[in-house]
Design a binder for these strands. Structure first.
Lengths: 335, 335
DNA sequence: ATGAAAGCGCTAACAT
DNA sequence: ATGTTAGCGCTTTCAT
């Protein structure tokens, strides 16, 4: 910058102002300076700038990896969310820092902020860390979490309407004549708890109560889901449908069912969750609950920016939509 | 830091040294300082540090979006690569900045470096930008590209062995008795060019020459692939197998074939490329060429770090592997 | 409309 | 083993 100042015959202050589009610089000096900067292939030293300004347009996106459940950054849904966030942040002129963090040690997420690397944190994957997240928020970490709204929540969350999603999926299966619907998911997780509540609600609306034996409590993982189905089958429990809490698990379930000569949709109706791209290409195409990923990305960053500005932001629940394809069909013969 | 110095009764220099683990600090002062820092919830101002050190442990990962082909950040393969890079960079103690960049304007990738935001750039998606990439490299931008090694290449690339991949896939189909193998992909792209070369080579090894009518030249996109199959079918060209240059396209192709009552593998053998997670869950499970994503991530960052250190690094071609599942089967009746 | 000068928080000679 | 000091490149108040 000093070079430019010298070559342009002005002071560094002028150059700084010109480069930042200050209004009180004459058009001609500005043009001269811009021209010079371009020809010297100069770009402003962002680190010096950040340092000086104590402000930086970057947001950390954190995907905690859960050692226990093994669902980590490779889950297509999470990855799609990363894509969506990248878009939303780019639109707002923010850089996106992607960090993997051990879920047992979310404090390192806080350090991203306190050290000035990022102005705030978007965390994808609430898991069972509600309390830890509350602790972070109470320490004034600007954070927004993809997940479900919970009681006594100090942090802002953005999530799909999980109760409604669970209800929609289950109601669809019930309407098609299914009566014994297996539920695949880990009910310890807040989002799954809500989906399960929707599942129970839908039954209630039909004057039914789900059989607890049909609850396959497994973490978000294809292999776990596959094993879960085999276990359920071996247990001798009768079931005519499956509601899986992610498309990945639905996919694994369909595969397991295929092996057991219980193909979807003929023998067993299957509904998934998320509507990742794969769902429409699967065979049979998967009926599933769509999470509004694009909208989620936008809302997550909007909320975070407001949190950073010190506003108190209410959790947001996004509407969710049943996408009917063909992995569940009308049941003709009773079980 | 000044606060800590005062409270500890030492100079800021001592605090700086202690916090950075310098060896010439007595154990007890170090502990006192660490303790103080912790209790004050202090973390070093990374921006000041970066500014001072002119060095920053962050790497920009750039995914150009190609307006024309519409393959962008949502492609599962790219997203998986992002995940792999996040892992590899985390292991090396680097932050990862994820940027979307218009492919027509890769210069903005250069700015990430010249402005000091990132020490180097990893670009996923070579597309047809060989010349632009060469230009960037000649301007001393530390960059490594996921893609194919090409003639007169000034930048370092890391990629799968595309010729071998194309050969493996095609040979497999030929061995199963297929003789009229459609090729789906955009031969303008370097990687596809190589895969096509492998396709031709495999034919040659059988004393055959592929029919140019069976080349379905479409960009990396599910819809394009689907339409391509329909077009091919309408054209009346006979084909008994399909080699698609990505699993996403293979998936779309299988779906189109299904609609045409030409299901895989019974009527038409299908082989994909990439081996994204979905491939093993599809129905039928997809036979495909596995790209070594985990290894790719590691090599990409190792290479970049060496480029940053000023070494001249040779392009790397990673081995590729045929994963036989069941979307292609032995052909019993001749066409 | 432009310049002079102070200072952001840190690190690294160079002392001691 | 610790302190003193200069200075990184930028922005901005205050002058002019």
């Amino acid at each position: 910058m000093a070079d430019i100042a010298r070559l342009a015959g002005v002071s560094v202050a002028t150059v700084s102002r010109a480069l930042n589009g200050s209004t009180l610089i004459s058009k001609e000096t500005r043009e001269r300076i811009d021209e010079l900067a371009r020809s010297l292939n100069y770009s402003i030293d962002v680190n010096a700038q950040k340092f000086r300004l104590k402000q930086n347009r970057t947001v950390a996106v954190v995907i905690p990896y859960d050692r226990e459940s093994r669902q980590h950054i490779s889950d297509p849904f999470f990855l799609a969310m990363v894509g969506s966030l990248a878009d939303a942040l780019t639109d707002r002129g923010f850089d996106m820092l992607l960090s993997r963090v051990d879920a047992e040690n979310l404090d390192s997420a806080a350090r991203l902020h306190s050290s000035g690397v990022a102005s705030g944190v978007i965390l994808i994957g609430q898991w069972r860390h509600h309390d830890q997240l509350n602790a972070l928020a109470s320490r004034k970490l600007p954070i927004v979490v993809w997940g479900t709204e919970m009681q006594q929540q100090l942090y802002c969350s953005v999530g799909g309407d999980n109760i409604e999603g669970g209800r929609l999926a289950t109601q669809h299966l019930l309407e098609l004549g299914h009566r014994r619907i297996a539920f695949i998911g880990d009910p310890q997780l807040p989002e799954v708890t809500h989906r399960h509540r929707g599942y129970v609600d839908a039954h209630a609306a039909f004057g039914l109560q789900p059989d607890p034996k049909l609850l396959v409590a497994v973490p978000f993982d294809a292999d776990e889901a596959r094993n879960g189905i085999h276990r359920l089958h071996r247990s001798g429990a009768q079931f005519d449908a499956v509601f899986a809490c992610s498309d990945v698990m639905a996919s694994a379930a369909m595969q397991a069912l295929h092996q057991l000569h219980l193909p979807a949709p003929e023998a067993i109706g299957v509904v998934g969750y998320d509507d990742i791209e794969w769902a429409s290409h699967s065979n049979p195409p998967l009926t599933t609950v769509r999470q509004p990923i694009r909208e989620a990305g936008i809302q997550l960053v909007e909320s975070l920016l407001r949190v950073i500005d010190g506003e108190s932001v209410r959790p947001i629940t996004l509407p969710v939509q049943l996408i009917v394809r063909s992995s569940a069909q009308r049941r003709t013969a009773p079980a």
